[in-house]
Each structure stands twice: as C-alpha cells, then as structure tokens.
Nucleic acid binder design. Sequence first.
DNA 1: GATCACATGTAAGAAGTTACATGATTCT
DNA 2: AGAATCATGTAACTTCTTACATGTGATC
Lengths: 181, 181
Amino acid sequence: MAHDSTLGYALLGLLHQLPRSGYDLRKVFSTTPIGRFSDSPGAIYPALRRLVRRRWIAAPAAARGGRRRRVYEPTAAGRRALSEWLARPATRDEVVRDWDLLMLRLAFMTENAQGPEPFLAGLAAEVRGHVAELEAFLAGPGAGMPLSARLAFESGLEGYRAQVRWVARAQAAARARRRSG
Amino acid sequence: MAHDSTLGYALLGLLHQLPRSGYDLRKVFSTTPIGRFSDSPGAIYPALRRLVRRRWIAAPAAARGGRRRRVYEPTAAGRRALSEWLARPATRDEVVRDWDLLMLRLAFMTENAQGPEPFLAGLAAEVRGHVAELEAFLAGPGAGMPLSARLAFESGLEGYRAQVRWVARAQAAARARRRSG
DNA sequence: GATCACATGTAAGAAGTTACATGATTCT
DNA sequence: AGAATCATGTAACTTCTTACATGTGATC
C-alpha cells in the first residue's frame, strides 16, 4: 500500500483516537505544540479527502445539504493501514531526514499491539549509527570547517546526541511500564 | 526582495565560498552530512535557474554549444542578497519550524561582516522561550498524555534543551574567537 | 436582521520527488 | 569503438502555502 504524507498519518492517528471534524483537527494543530503541522484549511481538507479517496477514513453520511460539520472516523482498512505503519521499524533515512515522522509514529504507538519497545530498540541502533557517522565526518573531512560552519554542524550533532540519551530513557520507561502493568 | 527556498540559499552560500557547477553542488550534498538536502538533479538544476532568473548568480558565458560544465558564481546582487539574509535575526517561527534554515544561515556567517554573535544572541533568546513554552504545555494541558505520546513530546523537548546548551557554548566560542583574533 | 464564530472549500503557485532522457569526455 | 563517468535537463506528480470564497448557526 502506497504511503501517505506525514500530515495524512497525523490525521489518521488523531481520528483513530477520537472521531473529529476537519475543524477539530485544525484546532489540535493550532492549540498544541505537538507537531509542526500547519492548521491551514488548504492543507487539512485536501489531506482528508485524500484519506477518504483511499477509504482509510469516512464521514458517516449525515450532514447532507450545505456545509455542515463532517465528523470523520477511520474505516477498518484505515485502522489496518495505521497498524502497519506503526509496525514499521525506524530507518536510517528517517533518522536523518524525517525525525518528526518517527516521533509521530511513536506518539500513536500506545494504540499499537506490541507497544513502543521494538520500535525504540531499532531507533536506538539507527540514531547511534548516525551519531557515529557525524563524529567520523567531524574528525575526518570536516576537520577544517570555519567557526560558524562547525558550530552549525555541532548543533546537529548535539541534537542527535540528546536523542541517544533520550531513547535510552524512553526504553527504560517503556520497560518499567510493561513490568508494572 | 522576496526570499528563496532553503535549497536556494544553500546553493547561493556555497557558490559564494567557491564558484561551482551544479554537479559539484550535488556532490557536496551527496558526500557530506552537512544538511538534509537532496542531491537530485530535479531539485538542483531548477533551483540554479531560479537564482539565475533573479540575477543572484551567473555562469560566465563560456561553455556554449552542447551540455558542458557550467560554473556559476554570485553576482553583486547575489552577494548583497546573501548578506541581507545572513543579517536576519532568528525568529520564533524559524526555531519551531525551520531549525535547519537557521543552522544554514549560521554556517555561512563566517563570510558575514558582524560574525555570528548577534545572531546567536537572538537565537538563544528564542530557543529558551520555546523551551519554556513546551515545558508549560507539559505541566499544563499536556500532563495527561499517554506514554508513547509523552515520550515523543519529550524527544522534542530534549532536542531543544540540547540546543539551549549548545547555543551557550557557541556564544562562548564566538566570543573567544573575537578576542583572540 | 446584522454580525460573529463555526466550518468547509478552492485556486494559483512554489518547490520538491522520482524517473527518465541525453549530451560530452575519458578510459581501456 | 564501447563503456563508464561526468553533467545537465525535463516531465509528471505530490503536497504544501497563501489568499480568497462561501455557507451555517447562534447571539445581540
């Protein structure tokens, strides 16, 4: 099954938590600092129609005539698509280019059968590997960078090092949760 | 002057360091982990033509006939545009949605008159403000998030906390550099 | 019945992606 | 000459942005 955009999965996950209207979804984005999604109608409504076209969500007939509030909820296929997406392990490419997408996946993982532990294990490996790559670059070809460029590079490196520490704590928290029920 | 895309500024900055061809620029992106830019020709060449259309870069006539290597360099207007861009202070919105763009600006700031210190000062204020916002959310409306969602939120928070520490060190490094010449 | 908040939609354009096409040079 | 590599270009598609348009219900 072809995949949707980050926004598409964000909407699908939110609708899985609770059926909502496009307007509700916009308010989620405009009132919480959860992601970096735009609350613009020009993004949300087309994304919803995309999901409808894929038959991942549906609005229970109702609300004919005029433009009333349309509440969407996932179909069986939509729930399946969400599950499959949540089960995907983190790739190196996502670590480098799409960290937000990985965190979105994690955020919805409570709804998942296995819980976050397998995902976090894979993520830990990939993020450590990426830090090693960045460190190798800094020690090798990147050694002679001018001050500002080196500072900018170190910002990225420090960000990923923080994620290495975070993921270890996250794994511990998930383990503790599983043991204590 | 209207602004260009992140990729456009990346190209402009690189060409300011050293005149290059599109192919050279692609290799920069494919062989260094500096940014998250794609090395795809479908992004690079149209972006170069955009910069040419704006008269920010030019390829010294030469290389007529057939498809030979075309080496671009910034025009006077291009250098001016780069300078103005580098002089822009970091905004909160960029901190939240476009950290990479800020780091790109910093990376080219060695070429700048003032050096990175004013930029870093503004950046420090904005990133601290954003951390405070995230902490307020976690303590207030976000207090009841399920485990996975909270972990994902904390990943973001820890990333920004790491940037608060990084920016303090970066300011110290820039100060030390200025004093010691 | 005017006005405001709720709610959805759309058009135009920007910029990227993937995949393909093609010319020029160098190496064997 | 053939193959690999250097080098540029383009078409189709996707998705987002900004800005505008429009309908519906509640309140004054």
